[in-house]
Design a protein around this nucleic acid. Structure first.
Lengths: 101, 101
DNA sequence: TAGGATAATATCGCAATACAATATCGGGAA
DNA sequence: TTCCCGATATTGTATTGCGATATTATCCTA
């Protein structure tokens, strides 16, 4: 398995993306990421969400679902801009490093 | 301009890629990255190269060019495997977050 | 109704990373 | 010699990553 340091940014971009598709909450996001092969413990996930919110990419509010309090995150305008920027960089990365064929 | 935390992994993947195309050295790589809009100071670049080498993705040897010592890096087998893994993850990322069309 | 399992988020403490600034090093030019 | 330039290295601080642990509230079941 290849070092995480290459992919932490990918994970954050996934998070931004999922937050555009609809409100996300921590554990649900962890499951989503696991489907892509990214295993993320709570000690990484939650601080990351907090930071993305603090930096203005996401905003959140708590909601009670099935008796449990979940903190749902949605993307902000700044977050959308960041995601667009990320898509540009992904295109560049693809153009550069992917074998055509 | 969007936060670096999203793109540090991209930069490392670029570095691996360029190291497959031929030997690279620090300053030359910095210029290459600048072409993609990534500005990387020496305090980030060199420790990153050292770490990629220490972890076995790259190997290096010094060479005198025009009187100046350059440290050239080439990719290792492990580095090639990592790059392939990265390509897979990039494909997944594209499939997930890029608007089709 | 007490106890335990479960869902979910939060935080602590240490290690690893990022990075601006600064240092170093050798050669060429004046 | 002295200064500049190309190039790499290191230092000190701040930030980030992350395993482990804590916390909180509800549901289930005996």
């Amino acid at each position: 398995m290849v070092d995480r340091e290459f992919f932490l940014g990918f994970i954050k971009i996934h998070i931004l993306y999922h937050a555009t598709e609809g409100p996300i909450f921590g554990l649900g996001m962890a499951e989503e990421l696991a489907r892509h092969g990214y295993r993320l413990g709570p000690g990484t996930l939650y601080p990351t969400l907090h930071r993305l919110e603090k930096e203005g990419y996401l905003e959140s509010h708590p909601k009670v679902v099935g008796g449990k309090v979940r903190r749902y995150y949605t993307i902000t305008e700044k977050g959308k801009v960041a995601l667009e920027e990320a898509r540009k960089k992904i295109r560049e990365l693809v153009a550069e490093v992917m074998e055509e064929k």
